Amino acid sequence: MPPESESWTIRHFSQANPVGPGQDSVPALLRRIADSIEQRPGIEPNGYLGTLDEVIVPLSRGTWLVSHFRNVNAVDHFFWLDDGVLRLHFEPLFPAQRDGSDPDGLVEVMRQVGFDLSEDDDADYTVHTEAAFALAEHLTGVRLTPEFLKSATYVCGTAPVPGRPAAVRESPPAG
């Protein structure tokens, strides 16, 4: 018997990023979105803008930002910024190798949430993704559960990749 299917409701809102001088700023777009949805995390499915310095550093000015990225190839990054300063960055698969202005400030919390900080060949890598989400929860107070994601209001939009020209869509040749 096939498993029962789930349905999710996505409430779609759009946020304009006007065209013109100074209007192509990804951090400005994301800040407008964040300001419009207080107390909600940003979720970027199938993207990596939340890992780019030119996006996350300006976005964190005047506040703090936590970003956890993981792709299908197990490329994984965790960032914690405070007022434009990178406090902590590491790859959750290799949590013993950290950088930032305070790379050891959360070592005890990292151990408590499940990271194996040893550099031994037999280090435990089985819960690194779960530990990254738990560390993000510790820093933000937001627990991303399936129920939270199902009931969330999503603000959807597109943003250009900084430094990359926007795609130009041309009509196919007639006939």
Rank of each mutant, 00 (worst) to 15 (best):
residue 83 D to F: 06
residue 84 G to P: 02
residue 85 V to G: 01
residue 85 V to D: 07
residue 87 R to F: 00
residue 90 F to R: 04
residue 93 L to F: 09
residue 93 L to I: 07
residue 94 F to N: 12
residue 95 P to Y: 03
residue 95 P to M: 05
residue 95 P to V: 08
residue 95 P to L: 03
residue 97 Q to P: 00
residue 98 R to Y: 04
residue 98 R to I: 09
residue 100 G to A: 10
residue 100 G to S: 11
residue 101 S to T: 15
residue 101 S to W: 02
residue 101 S to Y: 03
residue 103 P to H: 08
residue 103 P to E: 11
residue 104 D to H: 14
residue 105 G to Y: 04
residue 105 G to W: 04
residue 107 V to A: 15
residue 108 E to T: 13
residue 109 V to E: 13
residue 109 V to A: 06
residue 109 V to Y: 02
residue 113 V to I: 08
residue 115 F to K: 07
residue 115 F to R: 05
residue 116 D to T: 11
residue 116 D to V: 11
residue 116 D to E: 10
residue 117 L to Y: 00
residue 118 S to D: 02
residue 119 E to W: 02
residue 119 E to T: 13
residue 119 E to P: 01
residue 120 D to W: 02
residue 120 D to A: 13
residue 120 D to N: 05
residue 120 D to T: 12
residue 121 D to L: 13
residue 121 D to Q: 09
residue 123 A to V: 08
residue 123 A to H: 08
residue 125 Y to M: 09
residue 126 T to E: 15
residue 126 T to M: 14
residue 128 H to S: 11
residue 128 H to T: 15
residue 129 T to R: 02
residue 133 F to R: 13
residue 133 F to I: 08
residue 133 F to P: 01
residue 133 F to N: 13
residue 133 F to S: 11
residue 133 F to G: 10
residue 133 F to M: 14
residue 134 A to V: 02
residue 136 A to S: 13
residue 137 E to P: 04
residue 137 E to I: 06
residue 137 E to R: 14
residue 138 H to V: 01
residue 139 L to F: 08
residue 139 L to K: 09
residue 139 L to T: 10
residue 139 L to D: 06
residue 140 T to Y: 02
residue 140 T to F: 01
residue 141 G to Q: 09
residue 143 R to L: 06
residue 145 T to S: 15
residue 146 P to H: 05
residue 146 P to N: 06
residue 147 E to G: 10
residue 148 F to I: 13
residue 148 F to C: 09
residue 151 S to D: 14
residue 152 A to P: 02
residue 152 A to K: 04
residue 155 V to P: 06
residue 158 T to F: 03
residue 158 T to I: 07
